[in-house]
């Protein structure tokens, strides 16, 4: 089976791809933190943040369709907020639809949630589609993220597809024996599949660990060829952080 990788497009060549992963991660995380901390009324700040994201996206040459399709994952959450809060949040009524009252505060919440989640998710998509996953994990490690998290994420990246394949094979074997997908009747079968998938993964984990020990693994991952930050990386980092910070700080005056 052919799989889509989380870091698809991460091996293209572009100015953004060539930035040192730590600089990229720091810059985009800074942007997210600043964006999330901005009050929703300061709409023009969001224009600045969106502008930064737009420029980085354009320079990265990652296809827009890819960014948009990945960004769709946040829509269900936005939708829930958009369907509920305008009617439930107390405040000044600006529209009446029968017995439903739409409040201004509710609408502001919807705007707040959507713009912040969209900018943040696109920043993360850009980070992951312009940095090969192993390099990103190494960058996070060098930024003092506990190696436990990066190790777990790295294994997940390697093995998730094998587990998906395994599940797919089990599903086919099940369907070949005339399984009908009316899940409520088949909950037991599905439960057993999940259990056996868990056991298989557990056994695989054991074997992977044995194979690692056979090659001298003693608990810490060895690393080599670390990149150094160059001036272009520092410029990238300061430019993005400074632009976002100045937009945010200008609100204080």
């Amino acid at each position: 089976m052919k799989h889509d990788y989380i870091d698809k497009y991460s091996r293209l060549e572009s100015p953004v791809h060539s930035i040192e992963p730590r600089a990229k991660a720091l810059a985009l995380f800074a942007l997210i933190v600043i964006c999330v901390s901005t009050p929703p009324e300061a709409w023009w700040c969001f224009v600045v943040y969106a502008g930064i994201v737009f420029i980085v996206a354009t320079a990265s040459r990652v296809p827009a369709s890819h960014i948009i399709s990945r960004a769709l994952v946040v829509f269900p959450f936005i939708l829930i907020v958009a369907l509920v809060t305008p009617f439930t949040k107390e405040g000044m009524t600006i529209l009446e639809l029968g017995f439903l009252k739409v409040s201004k505060e509710g609408l502001i919440t919807v705007w707040n949630v959507s713009v912040k989640s969209l900018i943040s998710i696109i920043a993360l998509i850009l980070l992951s589609s312009t940095t090969p996953f192993p390099d990103l994990m190494r960058a996070l490690e060098r930024l003092k993220v506990p190696s436990f998290f990066t190790t777990v994420a790295s294994f997940m990246y390697r093995y998730v597809f094998i587990i998906v394949d395994e599940a797919e094979r089990m599903k086919r074997a099940r369907d070949s024996r005339n399984f009908r997908g009316r899940w409520i009747w088949q909950a037991k079968t599905i439960g057993q599949m999940i259990a056996s998938l868990f056991i298989r993964s557990h056994m695989r984990g054991e074997r992977v660990y044995q194979a690692m020990c056979s090659r001298g693994f003693e608990g810490t991952f060895p690393r080599y060829h670390d990149r150094k930050m160059k001036s272009a990386d520092v410029v990238f980092l300061t430019l993005i952080t400074l632009t976002a910070v100045s937009a945010r700080i200008s609100l204080l005056w």
């Binding site: 090969p132 192993p134 390697r158 093995y159 695989r204 074997r207 992977v208 194979a211």
Partner: peptide
Amino acid sequence: FQDPDDQLFSST
């Protein structure tokens, strides 16, 4: 090991 997916655990 018999199953290369046990032996090869890295991303590259």
